[in-house]
Design a binder for these strands. Structure first.
Length: 264
DNA sequence: ACCCAGGGTAACT
DNA sequence: AGTTACCATGGG
């Protein structure tokens, strides 16, 4: 079936390709991809409505959640705009939303992201899915933990992930042994959850915060990458503004795009 | 040839 | 507690 939803000022292209998700392609004007084991083709109808094509009726709520449709971004932007820099950043890219993605996929993806660029991250993840993910008639799924149990760094060599291969192996081992529990993190506050994720080799503050923000929607997580560090130095030498408190992660998405487009 | 990329680790002061 | 070389790979 097709599911059409309305969302004012939703920039689906920027949302899907701004570096929070890595598995979407734009083909023939449609955004195609698999999330949470569900395939979808999404069209931007140009009138603030968007149609998710070819899905199961029972998955409507999944896609509503995935695009965070229940969150009022207008209200957030209004709140953020109390700060002048945030006002400009939001004004420039008002259609960005923070996706609600799968924790495991997000963890592996952002382990791969470290000291890497978005294009190459996407390539490595594509090869990971083709090598270890379930094949369907509409593409490869992101591999489950079970599919990856037992893999070695040598097994991952075809991905050309470089030094990150052993980090993936360590993540799979610690999750399989339940030394780290992705389910358990849901109930933790952000500080405790961050420390839990950092038990995995190759997961530091930045990767952990990306997983918490994009995989658990813990909006007070604030991933500090190179771009955000530049923004903080230049615009916020005395600390982040009060008006983003509790939603630092969402604010970070606006700032990240702002920094990149202006090459701050 | 050099520098950088949605960083982290280990080995230094 | 705060720096720094090094880590693979590919693009500019």
């Amino acid at each position: 079936m097709d599911y059409t939803f309305t969302c004012e000022r939703f920039d689906i292209r920027r949302t899907l390709f701004c570096g929070q998700a890595f598995r979407w392609k734009e083909l023939d004007g449609r955004f195609c991809g698999i999330a949470g084991g569900r395939y979808a083709e999404i069209s931007d109808n140009g009138d603030s409505t968007y149609t998710v094509h070819g899905i199961e009726k029972s998955d409507i709520s999944y896609w509503q959640s995935y695009f965070d449709l229940d969150t009022d971004y207008d209200a957030l932007i209004k709140q953020f705009s109390e700060d002048e820099h945030m006002r400009l950043a939001c004004k420039e890219n008002p259609g960005i939303r923070v996706l609600r993605q799968e924790p495991f996929e997000t963890l592996i993806s952002f382990i791969i992201s470290q000291n890497n660029n978005i294009k190459r991250i996407t390539g490595i993840i594509d090869r990971l899915c083709e090598s270890f993910g379930e094949k369907t008639d509409r593409g490869y799924m992101f591999p489950t933990l079970e599919k990856l149990v037992g893999v070695t760094a040598e097994d991952l060599a075809p991905l050309r992930a470089g030094f990150r291969a052993r980090y993936i192996v360590d993540a799979v081992e610690k999750l399989h042994s339940t030394e780290v529990s992705l389910d358990g993190i849901k109930a933790m506050d952000t500080t405790a959850a961050r420390e839990e994720l950092k038990k995995i080799k190759g997961v530091g503050d930045k990767v952990a915060d990306c997983v918490l923000l994009f995989g658990y929607h813990k909006t007070d997580a604030f991933p500090r990458d190179v771009w955000i560090k530049r923004i903080e130095q230049k615009l916020y030498p005395d600390g982040l503004p009060e008006c983003i408190k509790g939603n630092e992660g969402i604010a970070q998405q606006f700032l990240f795009d702002y920094a990149r487009t202006h090459e701050i």
